[in-house]
Design a protein around this nucleic acid. Sequence first.
DNA 1: GCCTCGGTTGTCAGTCACTGACAAGCTCGT
DNA 2: ACGAGCTTGTCAGTGACTGACAACCGAGGC
Lengths: 209, 209
Amino acid sequence: MTKSSCYDATVMSPAPPRSGLREVTRRAVQAEIANTAMTLFVEQGYEETTIEQVAAAVGMSGRSVFRYFATKEDMVVGSMAQVGHDIAAALRTRPAEEPAWEALRRALDEPLRALNDDGGIALARSTLLTTTPALRAAQRQKHAQWNELLVPGITPRLEGSAASRQLQAEAIVAAALACLDVAVDEWTRSGGEKPLDELLDAAIAAVRG
Amino acid sequence: MTKSSCYDATVMSPAPPRSGLREVTRRAVQAEIANTAMTLFVEQGYEETTIEQVAAAVGMSGRSVFRYFATKEDMVVGSMAQVGHDIAAALRTRPAEEPAWEALRRALDEPLRALNDDGGIALARSTLLTTTPALRAAQRQKHAQWNELLVPGITPRLEGSAASRQLQAEAIVAAALACLDVAVDEWTRSGGEKPLDELLDAAIAAVRG
DNA sequence: GCCTCGGTTGTCAGTCACTGACAAGCTCGT
DNA sequence: ACGAGCTTGTCAGTGACTGACAACCGAGGC
């Protein structure tokens, strides 16, 4: 009965289109909460950290924290919604005649590089993600949303009836994101040593072999 | 801080190897709780149904319900753990030289048929699953466990170094299960009309095309 | 300078999933 | 019949999350 949250989160401001300055400060506060939370989570564990502790660390009431994040999990995975939109945007810039897999793979280049580059933080977050069941679940849910975001960019690259292309696109996107998950997991296990792009390419090659 | 649950669930009896009859009655009670819960969930919705209501309907205390199911979600998705083991077992019976994808696809034949056959209940459950975010998350977690169960049956069918085969196997299994998800989703949306096996084959063909 | 208005905040009270502890009851083997 | 082992209900508690309300704070109109 709790946490219906009805909308997504993180940018959980669909109703009031915040007016300029308000929005900026809101983002800032949101970012500070997220950072503080991440620090605490890494220090003492996700489950062992209460909302009250995070709130105290940022200097606000627990109630107010929930005015910035719909759920505790969103403090960690909230930003993934944005990444999903970025990938979808990148996909839209790919040439129309590019094959589905190729376009998808290229659309992942940018976020992949982002992960690989700021090694430290991304790796810490990824480790936290993979070691906390509740967070893994939340992460998977975000990925499912990526699916819906990416499918429209794939259907026009396929052949067959509309219904058939829909199913094909869903399958391809789901499989590609599954490969991404596998690659990121391996990357995380390797402590960020192995190059992410090669892992992803290997995963895709295995699937399509 | 809640629901660590440490072990899986449903068959959440790893410590005490229950002695014969005890185990039977336990399974029976478990099944009755699950059935009663499913009825209530379908009738009035998952989120809108409290544990207390389920407990009252079965005639026991809320506390005791949690002695049979680690979490509320497990009342719905608990049985999926068994299915995962079944698939893994089926995979082990496939000839060793059968290619990875083929063996995997064949190992899914049995559970697929089970879904398609008892149309009513499975479809109702599947519909509840797809319309309740919390349950979808739980379902995805179970699927992730299937991954780990199936990978060992795939690695020997691949080529390359041990590490390479591990990554390949993880990717293939994850992609195949992603295809399964897509197929089951479409099957659910079609009200059980479209044949599941054909949907799965179409999904796999799209991915590997 | 004051006042009002939209938005933000803290406080309080409540729901619900989930857990530990304990005492009482039931079942089984001997 | 009796004790060991399981199971059960009860009670008390934690923690995520929500609704309601009153107080506050900054920007615009007068």
